[in-house]
């Protein structure tokens, strides 16, 4: 059986996003709270995979959603869906922080996962740490393309709009990212394959 299909249009605007954004621009706190509840999980998922640390991801997500409050007036629904606009802001914040990280000293083991008590969970935690590590070694734009297309299930066109580039460039970034991860995570995926064969 083939794995779950990833469809395009993941940025399909939830009903009323534009109206809520307009109310937010007018200072409506309830509308803003609704938007935060609606978009926080996606924003956090992007920042988590881009920045590799829970604490940094929460900070970046907070900054992105704060901009939704302070700059809601500059959102133009006829030009982009709110999700695209917000993902774009989130992506830019992540890229800015990654650039600053490269310039500054970065604490080692800044986000060490606590080892779960059960062995299986521990193994999962180990694999998760390895995947996280491998993601963080990707060049920023390759990582962003992968996060948007693979994890957030955006189409190439949507990802291109977020990253201000062409679908062809996204294809190239994705292709390089996957090839690198395939190489880096070979022990992990081979282990899964052997588990499947043994089963």
């Amino acid at each position: 059986m083939l794995p779950r299909e990833q469809g395009s249009g993941a940025l399909g605007a939830p009903d009323g996003d534009a109206a809520l954004a307009a109310r937010t621009a007018g200072g409506d706190k309830e509308a803003y709270a609704l938007l935060v509840r609606r978009h926080l999980p996606r924003v956090l998922a992007v920042t988590r995979r881009m920045l590799g640390s829970e604490a940094l991801a929460e900070e970046a997500a907070q900054e992105a959603l704060l901009r939704l409050w302070t700059h809601a007036g500059s959102y133009e629904p006829e030009k982009a869906k709110l999700t695209t606009w917000l993902t774009r802001i989130t992506a830019n914040i992540c890229l800015d922080r990654l650039r600053k990280r490269n310039e500054e000293a970065w604490p080692e083991n800044f986000d060490v996962a606590l080892p779960p008590s059960q062995e299986r969970e521990f193994m999962d935690g180990q694999v998760a740490a390895r995947v996280n590590e491998a993601l963080q070694t990707l060049p920023e734009r390759q990582r962003l393309a992968l996060v948007l297309c693979h994890y957030e299930e955006l189409s190439m066109t949507e990802a291109a709009a977020v990253m201000d580039t062409t679908p062809e460039a996204i294809e190239s970034l994705l292709s390089r990212a996957r090839r690198t991860l395939r190489r880096q995570l070979e022990p992990e995926w081979r282990m899964l394959l052997s588990d499947d064969n043994a089963g």
């Binding site: 926080l40 998922a45 988590r48 995979r49 991860l181 995570l185």
Partner: peptide, 22 residues
């Protein structure tokens, strides 16, 4: 298999206090 491995990448889960902080 690689796709399944990639699924292990940690996904940020909003903590109970994060929304309030924002």
């Amino acid at each position: 298999a690689l796709d399944r491995v990639l699924c292990y990448a940690p996904e940020g889960k909003p903590g109970a206090t994060l929304e309030g902080c924002i």
